[in-house]
Computed example of a mutant assay.
Amino acid sequence: MPTLPLTLLVITHNEAANIARCLDSVPFAAEKVVLDSGSDDDTAAIAQAHGARVVHQDWLGFGAQRNFATTQASHDWILVLDADEYFGPEDAMHLTRLLPGVLAGDAAVAVLRRRTLYMGAPMRWYRPMVGERMARLYHRGRARWSDARVHESLRWDGRAESLDVAFEHLHNPTLPHKQLKVLRYAELKCRDWLERGRPPRVWMAPLVYVASFAKEALLRLALLDGWRGLVVAHTAAAYAVYKRIRYYEMVRNPESVEQARAVLLRHGLDR
């Protein structure tokens, strides 16, 4: 497969189980860069063995980490994947045929679709996991990541091109993996709220659960995926509630911010 003038960027921390599959699924990238925030497994060695240049950067938060990674690329056009994401062979070939036109054009970003495997099988109906549209290919002079600690987004000036290409996402392998991620993401989001001085509004928690569950189960069709869909709807609603009650605790007891940081750090969830 011919290589094209773009850089694949992957940010990692302890992704030894996933990184090889991710890197090998993008044979068309002229450069592969892994930005690692201090893995203590074999992530860096595996990445190097699979053709990536590994750069170390202490954790800055998701948005800032991605923006720093952008500065490490040798090419203006950048493809971003997480370590647990990859292209199937057919989609990689299809993208290779489409890319020359994209790279030569004036678009700021190209939008791809993401398909998700959950509890060991693909989701069939739940919209965010079936064909979620995401801007993952971008020109670094025309787009930039937000600086949010978590739930960062790509922002751009100019035209977005939509490509009929999908990549795969191996969602959290188990529910314990998911719950650990929830703890980390909620903590980061709450720190953002704390810096902005957002009112706690803990009284909204029951309403938030009902509204979030209904949104995921009905509007986003999780219910049609059976019990797995109900699990998805519940975990999404529980996350929405947990963020609010944890933020209330931060405001009510400011000492809990550093206390929680210390315990999360011991478990590798705050870096």
Rank of each mutant, 00 (worst) to 15 (best):
P2R: 15
T3Q: 14
T3K: 13
L4N: 01
T7H: 05
L8P: 03
L8A: 08
L8M: 04
L9N: 08
V10F: 05
I11P: 15
I11T: 15
H13A: 11
E15W: 07
E15K: 09
E15N: 10
N18C: 14
I19M: 11
C22S: 13
C22W: 06
D24N: 08
S25L: 06
V26P: 07
P27C: 05
E31D: 03
E31Q: 07
L35A: 07
S37D: 13
S37H: 13
G38M: 02
G38Q: 00
S39Q: 00
S39C: 09
S39F: 03
D41Q: 01
D42T: 11
T43E: 04
I46G: 12
I46W: 04
A47Q: 06
Q48W: 09
A49K: 09
H50G: 03
H50P: 00
V54F: 07
V55H: 01
V55D: 04
H56P: 12
Q57Y: 03
Q57S: 07
D58K: 12
W59Q: 08
L60Q: 02
L60G: 00
G61S: 03
G61F: 04
F62G: 10
Q65E: 11
Q65R: 10
R66W: 12
N67W: 02
A69E: 00
S74D: 14
L79W: 01
L81V: 10
A83Q: 01
Y86G: 08
G88S: 09
E90M: 07
D91L: 06
M93H: 11
H94A: 14
T96H: 08
T96R: 13
L99R: 06
P100Y: 08
G101K: 01
G101E: 02
V102W: 14
L103K: 06
